[in-house]
Each structure stands twice: as C-alpha cells, then as structure tokens.
Write a protein that binds this DNA or RNA. Sequence first.
DNA 1: GTCTATAGGCGGATAGAC
DNA 2: GTCTATCCGCCTATAGAC
Lengths: 208, 208
Amino acid sequence: MRQVNPGRMDRQLSPEKTEAILTGGMQEFLTRGYAATSMDRVASAAKVSKATVYSHFQDKESLFIALIERLVKQKFQSVFGEADEQMLQRPPQEVLRSFAHRALDIGSSEPQFLNFMRLIIGESGRFPQLARAFVSNIEQTAFSKLCHYFTHCPQLSLADPEATARIFVGAMVHFMIVQEMLHGKDIMPMQRDRIIDSLVDLIVEGRR
Amino acid sequence: MRQVNPGRMDRQLSPEKTEAILTGGMQEFLTRGYAATSMDRVASAAKVSKATVYSHFQDKESLFIALIERLVKQKFQSVFGEADEQMLQRPPQEVLRSFAHRALDIGSSEPQFLNFMRLIIGESGRFPQLARAFVSNIEQTAFSKLCHYFTHCPQLSLADPEATARIFVGAMVHFMIVQEMLHGKDIMPMQRDRIIDSLVDLIVEGRR
DNA sequence: GTCTATAGGCGGATAGAC
DNA sequence: GTCTATCCGCCTATAGAC
C-alpha cells in the first residue's frame, strides 16, 4: 500500500481531483455495487483519466474503503447531529414520535441512503471493517442517544433501558428495510404511524 | 429467453446436472455476490463444463434468479414450518420466547443464511423481484404467524396486533443484522436474552 | 447432452509522453 | 500531476466435435 490517506502522499495531488474522484466513485459504487463498478466508469464520472484515479488511490479496494469511510462519517453527522437539551422537558410520547419520524424519513426521502445501506450490508461479509465502522457511527449514535434518554427520562422507569433502546431502533430500522429497501411497500403495505403508535404505547403507557 | 424453467425445455437435460449447477452456483453466489461470481467458477463448483451451464440456463442472470427463488422457498419452509396447534394453550411468555429464540438461532447457527440475507439486501436495488419474493416468503411467514397469534391469544389484548407483530419481528431481525451480519457483536455486545426479556415484558406484562 | 476450444470484449493496472 | 495508449488476464457467451 502506497497511499491510503489522500491527504499525505509522495507528491502533491490536486485536492479538487481527489474530491471529484470520491464523488464520482460514490455515484458508481452506490448504484452498481463494489464488484460491478469499473475504474473506467469512476474516471468518467469524475471527469479525469483512469491514470489519475490510480495516482490518487492505490487500487479499487483502497478507493472503495476511503469512500465508504467518508460516507459513514458524513451520514453520521448529518442525521443525528441535533440538540437534545430540552428533550427531558418534553412529554416522552412527543420525543419518541419525533425520533421515530426522523429515523424513518431518512429512508423515504433520500434514496441514496438506501443504496448506501444496501452496499454496507451486501459487502459486510467481504469488508467487515466497513460494517463495523457503520455500526460504530450510525447505529451506535442513534442507539446511545436513545439509551441516554431512556435512562434519564423521569417519566419512564424501564427495567432495561439499553435493551429497550435496541428494540425501538430495531423496530424502526427493520420497518425501513422491509418497506423501502426490500420493496415490501408494494406487497404488504402498512402505515408507519401504526408502528410508531404501538411502539410508543408499549414503552410509555404500557399495554392498553 | 429460451428456458427459464429447467424442467421443461427444448431437449432433455440431465436433472442431476441441473441440480449440481444450482448447488455449485449457490456456493459461489452466496460467498462472492452476484457480480463477482464467474460462470467459470460455477461450472467448476458444479463439476461440469461451462457450456453445460449455458445449456441448462439461458445466462448468468437467469441462473441467479432461479437459484435465489429456489433458496427463498427452501429457507422459507425449513424455518417456520412448525406446528402451532397448542400455541394458544401455552403461556404467552413461553410462546414468544421460543419464537424469538428460533428466529435468532437461524442467524447464529447457519452462517450461509447470513450470506443469503446479505445477497438479497445487497441486490434488492438491482433485483427487486427477488427482494419481494423474500419478503413474501420469509418475512411475511414469520409475521403472519405472529400476527395470528397476537390476534387470537386470549391473555393478550393488544390495540394493534399487526403493528405489534412487526415490532416484535423487527426487533429480532435488526438485532441479528447488527450483531451477526454487521459484526456488531465485536464492538457493542449485548446478550440476546436482555432483548427478548424486555420485548416479552413490554408486550405481555406492560411496562414494569 | 456434454465436452473442448475459442471468440470478442471489458476489467484492473501501468508506462511513458508532456 | 495528468494525460493517452497499452498490456494482459478474465469475463460472458457460443461454435463445433463427439
């Protein structure tokens, strides 16, 4: 490996080209997957020559890893980088509902996020380090915020806040996976509000 | 398309070879993914010539689709083809716990099932019909069984049994995805019993 | 029916001009 | 630093022998 990090290299390369390659590569890898993406197409999408791609990144695998790691950090901070100061003062139903809606909005509003998750999951056997990075950043962020809330919210007294947080996040993410990613919407439709209502009721009010 | 179904074709082909191709192809596709699998390797794994593969299946895509559709049906009947006659007589805690353990055992015991789900999810953008087949068979089976139980179990009176069933299955599947598929076990371990206990308590006993 | 052999193209990666 | 041109191997798919 010659240059894993594009920032510090043997000779100075244009940061604009690096950016163009990462952006072009992102489009290609997200829509075609790892194996079906060719470096020719990455070069075309980035509007540089293939040799330039290889002068900025050692090989296809290095480019892919750099690109996904960057994407993991981007998605991570864009999604849950919100103030949670007055969360404890608002009614739990409201807090949980807003949390659930924000989580589900990601899947339905931004189609590239679905491809991003498809790629992470699809390559998790061959690129375990990327899957772990994803879990550390995305999953663990949503999870730890919710976990902190479940532990400290005075209106809730849960036997196992950590496990409950996983159930909450799990129900949301799975709903998104089945409905949006796996096209379950077409064959077994279900309003998101029914899931959210039931989940909030189970956690906040107990069984009705 | 010349021959989608290997059973009825222009000229008679050996069913043993068809079986060998499907089995060999399964190994290759499950471990390498769709794009990275070559027909040469499929032929080698099946111990036939490449030309024989092409006489049994029109092209790579046809083989892949036939193979995944078969796998969907196999996994479907092997996993939840169980008697549920006395379910209504047993205590709900016991029924739900057994259900949860069976669901989670699939992921931890059979490593090829993880690759199977990786492939379905990873290719769900490019092969939507396979994703829908998966949802129809696997997800909907688990879901509808649980849904039926939630609706008819006399000890439970849930406001929305359907939504609750989705929450239950979602929490289980998401736990499996994060812990096993995405290697979350290594970086954020959590005993499965804590999830199951919390989930069962939420549904059966209400909040403690 | 199944094989060997091969066509024809596209893949990753590099050499060398400027 | 970035380009054009090229190497060479592997890919999907098929032709033709048996």
